[in-house]
């Protein structure tokens, strides 16, 4: 299968500091790709260049052959890129269902409709999406009442509303309990397994990264320092040194138990 995304020599500097240097990679359809690295390695900068929030100094990002650089985020979304946020961004004064409906209303280009009742539009489609992520029972709850984990899940439903080719998830499990993390990423993996959507995610929880990703990219000081499967990355000495740590944490734990 062909590449959904082709990233070529992406670079970005902030006031003389090179946050991202010459990053290139490809993403196949149906691939689940993790982007990891220490804080400040340039993951978020990289991400924001993929979804249009930042304009790279140099380089190109092609989605199914179409250039994304220089296109504002809202248009990147229309071209088929969905995203979830590290800190959830939802419409807190609306219900769960309404949140998904808004994405559908926008997708169908009806946001300037002055007369229809918004809550009556695309109800069934929105409910189907909520069923897909297992939140149909909470459809009518106000968003502001939801637990954090549920909000993260809702974001996934919103991001899938326009049937994207590419889904970008920035630290999708940050702030969730361990089993919620597993459930959310399992859900995402199931959706990826259907073969249509490709996912790139950043993550600090290595269990999540190693459990689900097909391939892992490691960034350090703005540069891609490693790329490979979970086993390859775990065995990579450079990655261990800059990011995974010498394992002293786990070592101490063992001595503490002994």
């Amino acid at each position: 299968m062909g590449n959904v995304l082709e990233v070529r020599s992406l670079s970005k500097s902030f006031g003389g500091i090179r946050a991202v240097r010459d990053v290139s990679f490809d993403l196949k359809r149906g691939e689940f790709l993790a982007l990891i690295g220490p804080n400040g390695a340039g993951k978020t900068t990289c991400f924001n260049m993929l979804n249009g929030y930042l304009r790279p100094d140099t380089g190109s990002v092609k989605l199914l052959g179409r250039e994304l650089v220089g296109i504002p985020p809202r248009k990147v979304w229309r071209m088929g890129v969905g995203r979830t946020f590290q800190i959830t961004e939802t419409f807190r004064s609306m219900t769960v269902l309404e949140n998904v409906q808004m994405a559908l209303i926008s997708h169908n280009r009806r946001i300037f409709d002055l007369f229809s009742k918004a809550t009556a539009l695309y109800r069934d489609e929105a409910l189907k999406l909520l069923e897909l992520i297992g939140m149909a029972a909470q459809a009518d709850r106000p968003c502001a009442e939801l637990a954090y984990g549920d909000l993260k899940q809702l974001e996934l439903a919103i991001a899938l509303a326009h049937d994207p080719d590419l889904l970008l998830m920035d630290e999708p499990t940050a702030g969730m309990a361990p089993n919620e993390r597993i459930a959310l990423m399992q859900l995402t993996a199931d959706i990826v397994a259907r073969g249509h959507v490709s996912v790139i995610f950043t993550e600090h929880d290595m269990d999540v990264v190693f459990a689900h990703s097909h391939r892992i990219l490691v960034l350090n000081r703005g540069e891609l320092i490693a790329e490979g499967t979970g086993d390859e990355i775990r065995a990579n000495a450079l990655v261990q040194e800059v990011y995974l740590g010498g394992g002293s944490l786990f070592h101490e734990k063992e001595t503490a138990h002994a």
Binding site: G37, P38, N39, A174, G175, Y243, G245
Partner: peptide, 13 residues
């Protein structure tokens, strides 16, 4: 330990 890299988590400990 939330939201920081594993090396910093060690330092935190």
């Amino acid at each position: 330990s939330e939201g920081i890299a594993p090396v910093i988590v060690e330092q935190m400990a």
